[in-house]
Design a protein around this nucleic acid. Sequence first.
RNA 1: GCCCGUGUAGCUCAGUGGUAGAGCAGCGCAUUCGUAAUGCGCGGGUCGGCGGUUCAAAUCCGCCCAUGGGCUCCA
Length: 567
Amino acid sequence: MDKKYMERYWHTSSHILAQAVKKLFPDVKLGTGPAIENGFYYDFYREEPFTPDDIEKISKGMEDIIRQNLPVEKISVSKDEAKKILKDEPFKLEILEGIKEETVTFYRQGDFIDLCEGPHISSTGEIKHFKILSTAASYWRGDETRESMQRIYGVSFPEKAQLDQYLKFLEEAKERDHRTLGPKLDLFSIHPEFGSGLIYWHPKGSIVRKIIEDFWKDVHIKNGYQIVYTPHIADLSLWERSGHTGFYKENMFTPMEMGNKVFQLKPMNCPFHIIIYNTKLRSYRDFPIRWAELGTVYRYEKQGVLHGLLRVRGFTQDDAHIFCTEEQIEEEVVKVLDLVSFFLGKFGFTEYKTFLSTRPEKYVGSPDGWEKATIALENALKKKEMGYEIDPGEGVFYGPKIDIKIRDCLKREWQCSTIQVDFNIPERFALKYTDKDGSFKTPILIHRAILGSIERFFGVLIEHYKGNFPFWLAPEQIRVLPISERHLPYAEKIGGLLEPHFRIQIDTRNEKINRKIRDAEEEKVPYIIIIGDKEEEKNTIALRKHGEGMLGTFTTDEIIRKLKECQ
RNA sequence: GCCCGUGUAGCUCAGUGGUAGAGCAGCGCAUUCGUAAUGCGCGGGUCGGCGGUUCAAAUCCGCCCAUGGGCUCCA
């Protein structure tokens, strides 16, 4: 599918949508209607939201417009003329005011005309198959102080098969949704009545988490990090010192009063690592200092943004802080990027997007420091030959950063890895070290997370693998199924041999073998061992792989050797 | 936080003003089985919460809570 063509295609589709809406509801005011990654939307201003009935009518209206096969015509007019055309479209007029050029373009199809840069396809008849997918509210220009618009989403394709395929993709995505799969596979649960956005890790999910965390710690220690542990709460004064009570107040849980003290649940780990740093005078010889912690933080997120494991109120960051000199930034960032690609690759993610965010309007630190740090980050990205996009002015106020985003099943992007230079905290906590010449200097502080949050990463993992975790991560790796109760002792003997090497279960239920196989398959256990008279006689086992079926008959030693390679 | 939709058994859902339902799961009994659901039986619910309308509310109305899709925000 030609990307440029589909953009025009969807753009015209959105105009057809707008035309249908205008015809049915002449009082509706037009907002904007662009093509998006998968389809299109149009924003309308209307007091009443669109009902499912309205959507049905709009859909019919669109079919009419398509059937009429109206030519799409580009018209260039002066700004003054444009104002006249748009006299009843306040939102369009607002857009017009923002346009610098003296001549603007409109696109017309039949009796519908819209201020639009284009490009479009040549006639409405080219839109063959479309579907209105959903409606939602949105703020005009994304500004929550502005009008609330009614947004209608849709998708369209030249071929019916393409539309069907896309709708199938949406179905498939639903099946992969970690919010359904997680509880179904007994991995985790959420209990809104006892606090929304808080995750309960069940035994099976916890095993996966333990494997991830143990692996994470080992790799970090091998890569020159030291592990630290810090408290979950601290006196409010710590957060005043760090500045969080100012710039992060919105996201912090309300402080707790205990006697004459006030405690704050931590939204970040950094101030704690700083406290450790300040317990003694550091030397340039100590650098780089790399402290890592799987630190659980709590952030008060607005109700509407919570989303399964991907956006929660309590989560564990795979956090680390690197203290170094300005000259060491680049090398340290290269090392972090190495770790990022190692970890993400290990978990099966090879596609991700990298962003470099530069200095925003409001910032702390010196422009010179920002400049140097930003260049160091950029050089590191170049050295690693990582493609990246620059987000100008999107940096946090305290320093430039690199963000790496991976995609969930619905192609939503979620930030995992982040590498941030911080000019704020070293200043506020008066961090220092003794340099070669004996003078005191302020170190550079780099915050970084690779998986981001264990919860979010787990959610993305579930969707990525559709719950079929690779062998080394699977909560239950092998299930032994005796054909009848008679074979239970032999199954237990085999289980005993496998137990020291793998996470196994024996299905001792009084059920038919078909049922046991079905359940093991549905629970996505990677390997199934089946034991009956034949196996018992020859002292072998029958091996079946999840999703693939029978692999054959083997001895226990063979299985142990074979599967240990997959660990 | 904002807009719309949704909330009934552990799960998936039916039930539009008149005695709360199904399938799956759970429990009991029978069955001892060869590669994706054995049969029979039994329990199980303040119908999200609070208030209102009504002789009567799962059903109509209001508020609150939660959740879904978006917006804004973000690890």
